[in-house]
Design a protein around this nucleic acid. Sequence first.
RNA 1: GGCGCGGUGGCAGAGUGGUUAUGCAGCGGACUGCAACUCCGUGUACGCCGGUUCGAUUCCGACCCGCGCCUCCA
Length: 460
Amino acid sequence: MRIYNTLTRQKEEFKPMEPRRVRMYVCGMTVYDYCHLGHARVLVAFDVITRYLRHRGYDVHYVRNITDIDDKILARAEENGEVYSDLTGRMIRAMHEDEARLGVLSPDEEPRATAYIDDIIAMIHRLIASGHAYEAANGDVYFAVESFPDYGKLSKKKLDDLLAGARVDVQEAKRSPADFALWKAAKPGEVSWDSPWGEGRPGWHIECSAMSTKCLGDTFDIHGGGPDLMFPHHENEIAQSECATGHKFVHTWMHAGAIRVNKEKMSKSLGNFFTIREILEKYPAEVVRYFLVSSHYRSQVDYSEDNLEEAGRTLSRLYHALRGITPAKEGAVPETEFDRQFAEAMDDDFNTAGAIAVLHQVANEINQFRRDGDTEQAHRSAAVLVRLGGILGLLQQSPDAFFQADTGELSAADIEAMIQARADARKAKNFAEADRIRDELLEKGIILDDSREGTSWRRA
RNA sequence: GGCGCGGUGGCAGAGUGGUUAUGCAGCGGACUGCAACUCCGUGUACGCCGGUUCGAUUCCGACCCGCGCCUCCA
């Protein structure tokens, strides 16, 4: 299978260090606020990647960190008048709720920066000892960017350009404007840890170097994250890690595409972000997931009501195909041409859009079998659809659960009673009454579907 | 300014040197008491200009446009 590597800017044949084992690290959240859709994209993208790699038979060790100490966290806690760890604890719980609702499997390890202070200090120590970092007059420790000739190899930036474009408010203490903090001296009253350089806390980038190395070794297979982490975060990670260990840090770098709103990137600094929980108030979680998975993980996607609603209609088509069918038992149906096409798409840099097209072909086949009264074949194809959907984390609930959740003011019993009343009216050829009932339900967001087996219902 | 990514049919979104993406929406037909669902059929496409080629949406070059990073952001 081939994966696009940001480091080389091309798709490469994926060869993990150990044949059947994949070591992967993904930059997770800085927990000072609720997760937004951009976070969801990264969460879902690497969830699908993990699921597919496992489906392909790899033993994946997936590590995704939590940044639970940083300037923004301290600022927000101060603003709220609370202890920073109360804030981060609350946001971590919220994040776990959000990802569970989106069907995102937990990573194998979820290291937190504050639990790895010793490892961070040890790595900084090594960097100072090898001349790649220095303790400045203000108590901070900085990484000396010019000591690493490869600096810029991920983001394709030249150090000269970075220095020329540096902002005016350069830290006096830095030897070079491009140097970045490994350790920040604590201001009076700030939460801090003891270190050889005095009380302080880690810089933003060093935690990921320290934790990934600790959890996965000096060198590992895949490192992923959001599009805006490429520079400076990932660039700095490479510098720190390769200077500290003397080994290549990561083989394959993967970056998700940005989420946009009105042609602008959704980001916290622009203030145009939607949190996952806001969106989940308006759309079923699986629809949001489907929306995310229906385009390639590296492409930009636009968040809009139209797009989410279309995703809802499209996912409904898939669930419609499954309605009233008990899929054949997993394993009872051998691999089909559809499995092959699905794998072909996914093997090509996780082309989920192509894979979903296959899902629709399977749904179409199910509907054809059903039309022809070939129940046996319909059930077998349904098993294929559920099997392939599962690799993307989709189609794992019952169609009724999907269609009949969140019905608003009416209970299922109310709806069933009205359906019965309508059925009676129809039997009596009182179509005016039957249509009145159907319209009343529609007004309340309930759509009826008649079939030979009877009438079923779903929310609009 | 530097670096990078992209421009596909009404919309969303894959892909390919010559042959159907897929879905949503639309239209015609079947089914239906009428609808919905479903099935069958159907139209509109590859930013612009050159080049390579028997043939380019697909390769190469120029141009136009959009976006991202260069500062905390997934």
